[in-house]
Amino acid sequence: MAIPLIVLAAILLFDLFFTPGFFSLEIRDGRLYGSLIDVVNRAAPVMLLSVGMTLVIATGGVDLSVGAVMAIVGATSACLIAKPSGSILSGIPVGTSIPAIIAVSLGVALICGLFNGVLVSFFSFQPIVATLLLMVAGRGLAQLLTDGQIIIFTNPGFASMGSGAWFGIPIPIWLAVGMFGLMGLLSRRTNLGLFVEAVGSNPVASQLSGINARTIKLAVYAICGICAGIAGLIGTADIKAADANNAGLYLELDAILAVAIGGTSMAGGRFTLAGSLIGALLMQTLATTIFARGITPEATLVLKALIVVGVCLFQSPRFQARFQHRQAGAQG
């Protein structure tokens, strides 16, 4: 966790000197504005995804479907609000109640998560394979819900989830930090964290210690689904529309990247939610900085690719062995 924190600090320090106004904050209409707030606000969906993804990766799995789940949830919520004619969701009597809409949408997210979880834990599919399925079909389902249209809606109450503020801080930030806090508590105050790490670190020993790995895996995929659901709601509320094709596109990669940068091993075992959060912030800060420098934002993608390879190389035992070997050679 220390290294990403240092990198984050270094980028911020760079911004302090070279990006004018990066640290300036101002209050307009009772809401904080400024690059820093903007960075965190934009990072909120990936932060949310990375919370769930961290737990999944800690059990030795991965969830490639979170982007598609965001699209499904976005489509669900938008359809429930806008009630387009012919939508198969019309039958759900939620009226205009925002809590009911949110509850149904997150229910859908939970079902998606459980679907992944059942395939992984009860059918013993490889996690990549199992979640790939929803990654393929998920966008199709989302388009089915929206009938292929981009559903635009006006609902100030719901839209505030994306663009509103609470005590001056944008609501997405509250949601991301809230989910992080909740999962932090859940994983450290209950045995969930211990069991997740045990299952990821040594499944056989965990089994012999009476830990039910199936239930644990089911639970983390469900949590990951819920996290993706909240991220999907934020994304939809932000643009006041559901775009089944582009909502959450490639965000599963960002989430995996955040977890990897944060220091959680891709092989499972020990995890750090705070690290993943810093990973998500680091990437957004980098993107914003690059954008502010006038460099084409596409460079961020290339940079992300290099970072993920670098991080994985450093985690790889083979690479470490080779590196140490060379050092030893230089010394001896």
């Binding site: 990669l253 596409e298 961020t300 993608l301 290339v302 690719a305």
Partner: peptide, 8 residues
Amino acid sequence: AGLFLCRG
């Protein structure tokens, strides 16, 4: 990572 690289 290759996906990112190519798209970028």
